[in-house]
Amino acid sequence: MAKIKPRVKVPRSVKAGEFFTVKTLINHKMESGQRKDKKTGKKIPRKIINFFEASFNGTPVFTADIQPAVSSNPFFQFSMKVDGPGKLAFKWVDDDGSVYETAKPIKIG
């Protein structure tokens, strides 16, 4: 499987107290556990991203508890507002225990 690489999109700068949109995408097969291996007929074990969290300066902003019915390459979009600049950190948790992380600075402009 290709390297898992999270992606996020935030505005270059935001206004204090005004909502802005955050988009996130991570490449992941989201193996549902429902599919069968065509050759062996056996079920392919589930392996999904089961949790997503965005937090600003350490405070959770948005989280998602994820089931296998979320599509491959999971995409989440939400809106948030901040009073001042800081770091928006993102975390995806895999069934196998791996954690994928990235962060974006939020600038007030």
Binding site: T59, F76, Q77
Partner: peptide
């Protein structure tokens, strides 16, 4: 499918893609 939780900074709204 999915459960979204919103903190004080978030608008209670979200978008995703589902099966």
């Amino acid at each position: 499918v999915v459960t979204f939780n919103f903190g004080a900074m978030a608008k209670p709204a979200a978008a995703t893609r589902i099966r």
